[in-house]
Write a protein that binds this DNA or RNA. Structure first.
Length: 216
DNA sequence: CCACCGATTGCT
DNA sequence: GCAATCGGTGGT
């Protein structure tokens, strides 16, 4: 766990007006405790059902300086949406098997985001169980791939406006949060020791981090 | 064109 | 510990 470059570009005042517009690290921290709400699309198991969860784990992927961020090398066919407006969804396919949901941060054209890594299920738990056969409730939406499976999030959601989309959106919490833990990010080979993973220290739904991470 | 690899997960 | 499975990336 080492120093992280300061990439702060916007003021606290702006952030208060628009929680998606703050510096990426602040958005990652403030997303802990927010609610992700989803209406399962037609054609999917549980179509039409409302599912929601409390966000309990996030990771920041910084502008300009972060080689692990998909925006680092400029826009590609996969990563164009990370250069969109703050609050847009950036969804990509990982390992050819799972999807990851990110929230775009910073002004348009910058290319940074926050990865949503885990939810504590709130509404639609039965639907999530159906979509996620055999998993214990604490693991239904634990891990970035798992939560996308539970909520039927895929490439069709890439670029949607998470502030306002009726089918997939985020509601920030005004309630005070409990203790927020900070560790290095999971699964990276570059910038592996930057302390950019945030999690609700009291939640049982936080993903199990690999042995190699720098907790404590 | 080809080889390699990844912000993961679940099964052996 | 490792396979699954796809597309981005960089080299031939």
């Amino acid at each position: 766990m080492r120093q992280v470059p300061n990439t702060r570009a916007s003021s606290d005042a702006v952030e208060r007006l628009d929680p998606f517009a703050g510096p990426t690290v602040d958005v990652a921290r403030h997303l802990i405790g927010a609610t992700l709400e989803r209406i399962i699309p037609s054609g999917e198991v549980g179509a039409g059902s409302l599912v929601s969860g409390r966000i309990v784990e996030t990771e920041a992927y910084l502008p300009y300086v972060d080689p692990a961020c998909h925006g680092y090398r400029g826009p590609t066919k996969r990563s164009v949406t990370i250069f969109g407006r703050p609050g847009d969804a950036y969804v990509y396919l990982i390992y050819g098997v799972y999807f990851c949901l990110n929230v775009v941060t910073e002004p348009p054209g910058i290319g940074s985001a926050v990865l949503i890594r885990a939810l504590e299920p709130l509404e639609g738990i039965k639907t999530m169980r159906r979509r996620h056969r055999g998993a214990p409730d604490s693991r239904l939406a634990s891990g970035p791939g798992n939560l996308c499976t539970a909520m039927a999030i895929d490439l069709r959601d890439n670029g949607v406006d998470l502030r306002a989309d009726p089918s997939l959106h985020i509601v920030f919490s005004s309630a005070p949060q409990g203790r927020i833990g900070i560790t290095s990010r999971v699964g990276l080979s570059s910038a592996a020791d930057w302390p950019l993973r945030f999690y609700d220290a009291r939640s049982a739904s936080v993903s199990r981090a690999p042995r190699t991470h720098n907790s404590r």
